[in-house]
Design a binder for these strands. Structure first.
Lengths: 193, 193
DNA sequence: TCACTCTCTTGACATACATCAATACTTTCC
DNA sequence: GGAAAGTATTGATGTATGTCAAGAGAGTGA
C-alpha cells in the first residue's frame, strides 16, 4: 500500500527504515470507487491525499454550471484544496475519483506530527508546493498566450497517456475549451500528419 | 529600511527584538531606478526580493516578442523566479522596476542560515508559497472561464490603485489581452455607469 | 524648445472559439 | 436485453477578441 509513496519520497528525501515505519503511522489508507467524492465544495478539506493507485481530479463549478478542472492526479501525485486544508475555510474545489482508486490520507494533525517527528518533510512539502506553483504559472501563461491547439499539444506531449484515461470532454474542461472545439482540434491535428 | 518587512512579518509570525536584529543581518538592501533589471531571462536568479518601496514586475517574452506579465510586486510583496532560485537553472522570467524602488535581497545562502537560526521562517515562507499558489490558481480559472471584462473588473476590485501606478498596456499584458481590447473595455465600462 | 518615444484611442476587418442543435455510438444498470 | 445516460462528432451561426493602421496627447531628453 505504501510502495508508490516511498518511491516518490526517495526521489526527494532519504528516509531511514525506522523513519519509514514511523511515517506509515501518520497516513490513513482509503479506497474510493469511481465517481466517489473525497471533497465537496463547501465542506472543509480535512486531508491532503496521496494517490497510490487510480486517478482523481479537482474542479470548480462556475455560476453557469460549467466545470473547470484544476488538476488531474495520477498515481504518485498529491491532491487537496490547500487553502481550505490550511485555513479551515469551506473548500472552493470538489475532488472526486475518475477511476477506482487507493489513497493515503494525511490529516492536519497527522501532518503536524509528521513534520515534527521527521523534519525532512518540511523540505519535501516545500518542494511539492514550489512545483505546483511553477506548473500553475506555466499553465497560466499558456492560457493567456497560446491557442487551444497549442495548449492541447503541450498537454499531450507532457502526458501522452492522458487520452486513454480521461474522457475527452474533461480534457476540454482542463484546457478551458468546449468539447466541440476539442473534437475539431483533434480532427485537425490528425489530418495534418 | 526594514519597516515594511517587519510589519508584514508581524502579520504571520511573532519575532522577538533579538530575532529582528539577527534577521536584519541576512538581508542586503538595494535601490533600483525605474526600468532597471534585477533579473534577466537566462541569468540565474540569485535572490528573492522583498519590496520595501516602489514596484516591480516579472514577465516572460514569447516567441512572437510579446510580453506576458506574471506578477506585479508592490510594497510588502516578494518577487523572484522561484524555480531558478531553487534549482540554479537559468531564469525564464525577467524582473524589472516600474518605479524607483527599494528592495531587501535574500540570497540562497542567507535564506538557509535564516531558516536555520529562526525556524519560524519555515512557516512564513510556506504561507507565502501557499498564497502564491492559491492566487495563481484563481487567476488560471479566471483566464479559462471569464471574459476579459470580468477579469478586468476583478483586477480593479482587488487592487483599485493599480490604474494609477501601472500603464494600461501592462495591465493588458497581465490580463492576457491586447492594449486595444483593454481600451475598448474601459470605454464600455465607463459608459455603463 | 523641439524632436522623439511612449501611451492611449478609434476604426475596419479577420479569426478563434462558443453556442445551439442534431445524430450516432458506447457504457451503465435495472 | 433494453432503456437511459454519457460521450463524441459535425454543421450553421454568433461573438469576443486579435490584428493592422492611423492619429493625438503626454512625458522625456538633448
Amino acid at each position: 500500500m505504501f510502495e508508490v509513496l516511498f518511491q516518490k519520497l526517495d526521489e526527494k528525501i532519504k528516509l531511514t527504515e525506522e523513519e519509514r515505519q514511523l511515517c506509515k503511522s501518520f497516513f490513513t489508507p482509503k479506497k474510493l470507487r469511481k465517481r466517489q467524492y473525497i471533497l465537496q465544495e463547501g465542506d472543509v478539506c480535512k486531508y491532503i491525499a496521496f494517490v497510490e493507485k487510480g486517478m482523481l481530479r479537482s474542479y470548480t463549478i462556475d455560476d453557469k454550471d460549467s466545470e473547470h478542472i484544476i488538476q488531474f492526479a495520477f498515481e504518485g501525485w498529491w491532491i487537496s484544496d490547500h487553502f481550505s486544508f490550511l485555513t479551515g475555510e469551506p473548500a472552493v474545489y470538489t475532488i472526486d475519483a475518475l477511476e477506482d482508486s487507493e489513497l493515503l490520507l494525511l490529516s492536519r494533525q497527522a501532518e503536524e506530527q509528521l513534520l515534527q517527528k521527521i523534519p525532512k518533510f518540511e523540505k519535501y512539502f516545500r518542494i511539492l508546493l514550489q512545483n505546483s506553483l511553477i506548473a500553475t504559472q506555466r499553465r497560466l501563461i499558456g492560457s493567456l498566450s497560446q491557442t487551444a491547439e497549442e495548449r492541447y499539444n503541450d498537454l499531450i506531449t507532457g502526458c501522452p497517456t492522458i487520452p486513454q484515461r480521461v474522457p475527452q470532454h474533461m480534457m476540454a474542461s482542463f484546457l478551458g475549451i468546449t468539447p466541440e472545439t476539442l473534437s475539431r482540434i483533434r480532427r485537425q491535428v490528425a489530418s495534418t500528419r
